[in-house]
Simulated assay, not measured.
Amino acid sequence: MKAFIAENIKGRRYAELAKLMSARFGITFTAGQMHAYAQNHSLSNEMPTGPIAGERPLLFPEPILTFIRENAKGKTNAELWKLVNATFGTDYTEKQVKQVKQRNHISSGLDGRFKPGTTPPNKGKKGYCAPGCEKSWFQKGHEPNNHLPVGSEVMRTDGYLQVKIAEPNIWKLKHILVWEKANGPVPKGSVVLFLDGNHENTSLENLMLITRAELARLNQRNLIRDDADLTKSGVLVARLISEIG
Rank of each mutant, 00 (worst) to 15 (best):
K188E: 11
R12D: 02
V163K: 12
L215P: 00
G197S: 05
I9K: 10
K123Q: 13
G117F: 00
L209I: 06
N104M: 04
L193H: 02
L83M: 11
Y37K: 06
V150F: 12
T76I: 07
S203L: 07
K82N: 10
K125R: 13
G159S: 14
F60G: 01
R212P: 00
D226Y: 06
P120L: 13
A216W: 12
G141Q: 14
L148P: 00
I52V: 11
E180V: 01
Q99L: 06
F25M: 11
E214K: 05
N222C: 12
K75G: 07
L59A: 11
K101V: 00
S108P: 07
Q33Y: 13
E7L: 13
H41M: 10
R225M: 11
H41K: 13
M47F: 02
K140I: 06
G189P: 01
L17G: 00
G112Q: 07
P185A: 05
R69W: 04
G234S: 13
E180P: 05
G184K: 06
F88K: 09
M208S: 08
N219K: 15
T119H: 14
K135S: 12
R212V: 11
G184A: 02
P121V: 03
I210T: 12
P185H: 03
P61T: 02
L148G: 03
G74C: 07
L230M: 10
I170P: 08
L193F: 02
L236S: 15
E143R: 15
R69E: 08
A18V: 02
Q162A: 15
F29I: 04
K2F: 13
Q139T: 14
M21R: 06
M155R: 09
L223P: 12
E180M: 06
K140M: 07
L207I: 05
K174I: 06
A18T: 00
Q102H: 03
K98A: 07
L43H: 06
M21I: 13
G54P: 09
L59I: 01
G189I: 10
S233H: 11
L58T: 04
V100W: 05
P187W: 06
I106E: 03
L161S: 09
M34K: 03
E180L: 06
F4M: 05
K75W: 05
N71Q: 04
K19C: 10
K172A: 14
F138K: 14
R69L: 04
H199C: 10
K2V: 12
G32K: 06
A3F: 08
S203R: 12
F194E: 00
V237F: 07
S108C: 06
E62L: 06
E62S: 03
Q102K: 07
G109Y: 03
L80H: 00
V97N: 01
K115V: 13
V150N: 07
L195K: 04
V100P: 02
E153F: 05
L173H: 15
T231P: 07
G124R: 10
N198V: 07
K174P: 10
K73N: 11
Q39W: 10
M47G: 01
